[in-house]
């Protein structure tokens, strides 16, 4: 089960993920991210604070979306990962290609800078 809460403020979109990002829920997130990119979102912060678990299917969504962001000029920042989720990002080498911050404020600040 995954819940995606969305809030918008001007150019910035913040997504709050709650639950588990697995093979069942990953397509839902993929669809939502594609819609947001299509709507011309310029900056996006994804808050992982309430995400309990992520598997490869979820990582794949972020890898493909990171590419899409680079191509279409969307600025992306991820934040508030729980240690277990951060560990998965780290062993996958995603910490090298994605901007990850401990707090939402820092993530938003990085998008504004």
């Amino acid at each position: 089960m995954l819940t995606i809460d969305e809030s918008r403020e001007a150019e910035l979109t913040v997504l709050q993920l709650t639950g588990r990002l697995d093979a069942v829920t990953a397509p839902e997130l993929e669809q939502r991210l594609a819609t947001l990119a299509g709507d011309g979102c310029g900056k996006m912060a994804v808050d992982f604070g309430k995400l309990e678990m992520i598997v490869s299917a979820g990582l794949r969504v972020f890898l493909a979306f990171a590419k899409k962001c680079r191509k279409s000029g969307i600025r992306l920042a991820l934040c508030r990962m729980q240690p277990v989720v951060y560990e998965v990002f780290k062993i996958s080498g995603f910490t090298e290609i994605l901007a990850i911050f401990p707090t939402r404020e820092e993530a938003v600040r990085s998008l504004d800078s």
């Binding site: 490869s56 990582l59 890898l63 998965v88 062993i91 996958s92 080498g93 995603f94 090298e96």
Partner: peptide, 8 residues
């Protein structure tokens, strides 16, 4: 995960 790591 290894596939994704190599793609990253």
């Amino acid at each position: 995960i290894v596939i994704l790591r190599e793609l990253a």
